[in-house]
Design a protein around this nucleic acid. Sequence first.
DNA 1: AGCTAACCGAGACGGTACGTCCGGTCTTTGT
DNA 2: ACAAAGACCGGACGTACCGTCTCGGTTAGCT
Lengths: 196, 196, 196, 196
Amino acid sequence: MPASPNPLRRNEASRRAILDAALQLSAEHGYGRLTIEAVAARAGVSKKTIYRWWSSKGAVVLDAIDDMAAVADYPDTGSLAADLHTQLTAVIDLLTSPENSAVTGLIAEALQDRELAHDLRERLIRPRITTFKSRLRKAQLEGQLAPDADLDVALDLIYGPVYHRLVFHLGMPDPQQLETLIDHALRAFDPPQSTR
Amino acid sequence: MPASPNPLRRNEASRRAILDAALQLSAEHGYGRLTIEAVAARAGVSKKTIYRWWSSKGAVVLDAIDDMAAVADYPDTGSLAADLHTQLTAVIDLLTSPENSAVTGLIAEALQDRELAHDLRERLIRPRITTFKSRLRKAQLEGQLAPDADLDVALDLIYGPVYHRLVFHLGMPDPQQLETLIDHALRAFDPPQSTR
Amino acid sequence: MPASPNPLRRNEASRRAILDAALQLSAEHGYGRLTIEAVAARAGVSKKTIYRWWSSKGAVVLDAIDDMAAVADYPDTGSLAADLHTQLTAVIDLLTSPENSAVTGLIAEALQDRELAHDLRERLIRPRITTFKSRLRKAQLEGQLAPDADLDVALDLIYGPVYHRLVFHLGMPDPQQLETLIDHALRAFDPPQSTR
Amino acid sequence: MPASPNPLRRNEASRRAILDAALQLSAEHGYGRLTIEAVAARAGVSKKTIYRWWSSKGAVVLDAIDDMAAVADYPDTGSLAADLHTQLTAVIDLLTSPENSAVTGLIAEALQDRELAHDLRERLIRPRITTFKSRLRKAQLEGQLAPDADLDVALDLIYGPVYHRLVFHLGMPDPQQLETLIDHALRAFDPPQSTR
DNA sequence: AGCTAACCGAGACGGTACGTCCGGTCTTTGT
DNA sequence: ACAAAGACCGGACGTACCGTCTCGGTTAGCT
């Protein structure tokens, strides 16, 4: 998220050192205790250099995460439920492991910073929503999901629970509970049986 | 979340002034810009007095919100879907209105602070989950929900979407979308029609 | 040169530590390399505490010097010329010794800072001019100086040379030269002999 | 004060632009607020170019002043006292006018920088001392000054007062006071009348 | 006339210190 | 006796300049 200076003259070594330092320090002491000061020191870089290219510590961490975590293809073993289970497990691990406090830290910060929120959504989340929907569309073609299922609703029902639990610290579902959740979420797209 | 001093000798007027100031300032400048310093000044209170009774700005704001928002009974008009719609709309308003930035601020802070997270869950959230489940149980008795429906799953499916959208700034559902969501969530508890 | 806070509540230990640190550091590294940052560190004091009571590093050093160097009586052995020699030698030592770089540093800074210049004049210089003039007045009573001699002119002629040499780094007079200078300066007040 | 690069290939336009910018900015904002950064920007020149040819901001300003103020002949109307008055008035104007803050700034900086002090003395001051002494020697030949008068002492007595007053901000002499000062200074070289 | 070394503009960089803000603790003072 | 008022240490903030360092692009003077 560069601001104004000439990106062509940017020092790639400094950029890498900054992003690496940000992730390391976040893992070591937690996102909350991360400071620009410490990142600069660890990276052997002037604070000015950080402020030249990023507008806040959140922006640095977002870049660092984005840089690290290339968008992976959605798992596809043929079984939609199994693939959702696999992928949700990965997400839960990411949100839960202490060394990835950067991710929840970023989520927390974005809740209070519109600009950061925008970048978080567009750069990290949107692409992953896209691959998720592609996987669902394939499932529709294969008859594992109703052809008229609203994929946005599916997104809400399948991923919503994880973030609801995250936000209120209700504990993440164990594999068994996760299977139950997925099962219910998918059943929501079965044709209605009766009026309610 | 008092710490140690004798609560009997506590000055109620100061307590009220502090909680009021915290909410006012949060509404005026946003939770992120809220400082203990400013609360003390606005409340006409020494910083010491704040630190005597609370451990962090999050704790103050939690108290303030708790104090303000008594646990309301879950709406009950007889129609489960309609009541869910009503209550979810209230939640969305709360999470969305700028003057209630204290709530999302608290959520954000709790993501990074285990102790605050614990208090947030136990004091604000748990009681509301309880009333929600009571309402569902009544619906089961009335036949609006399968008697064997797992109420924890219902909680996840019904409230999850809101927080998923909050966390990634995906936009809150409009009333129409909300109705669709509730409809799908409830359908997840219909008896299965076929093997999947 | 306090700004606004309540001087009654001032911490004397901090004040002393700051002034001592300023003089020490000035002697060690030179006034030019003196920083508020280093003074705070050496004094074990928050930078805020320094800025609370002083407006600039010059103001701190002025206080430190003022605190250290009480106004001494002008030497008085009965011989005006000898006493001037004694006192001028002391001034030259002060302006010359490396460990007193604080004094010339202050002079330099005052050349660029009107407020500091004002304080330097009123607090350090003016009182010493007063004692100097008193000594001259005594010499007048004793017949060592013409009774109608203009004491401001005498001040200029006697002290001027030192500062002229200081400012342009022309080298301070050795004791012999100093005697010659004083002799000439005093002779300027002899009654005129002839028209010029 | 060139350092090492080949002076033959030097860009005269850049040199002029830098010196002009230095004087302009010094006049506009004061020597103290002058920065190499700003000079480079105003002159449309790279900072590197400045550092290539000068060692400090003081060196730049010294060059600028030297460039501007060619050494003028000492005034010579036949009356020594009148000529001294004329020339001292010019010096006082130079040291007093706000737009010439560069001069006092340079003096201030030289008080803290031996190398700059050396250059200031040798390039600006020494030549002017030389012309001053020449004027005095002529006065000696004409019988306006004792033939055995020590010209260094005369320099001290005549110019000293101005710098004493500059350094301690005692106010410059008005024309009347200046005449008195010169009169006394010259009288110091009259033959002694009596033992003192 | 062409080559090449240098100077040049631009400006990113590692640093140092700035002056400010706020967190939490401790002290003084008035009521 | 209690708090209010607020001074205090500490530490991070974001900024300003420092002086150094590439970059390409002129430009000058020697082949």
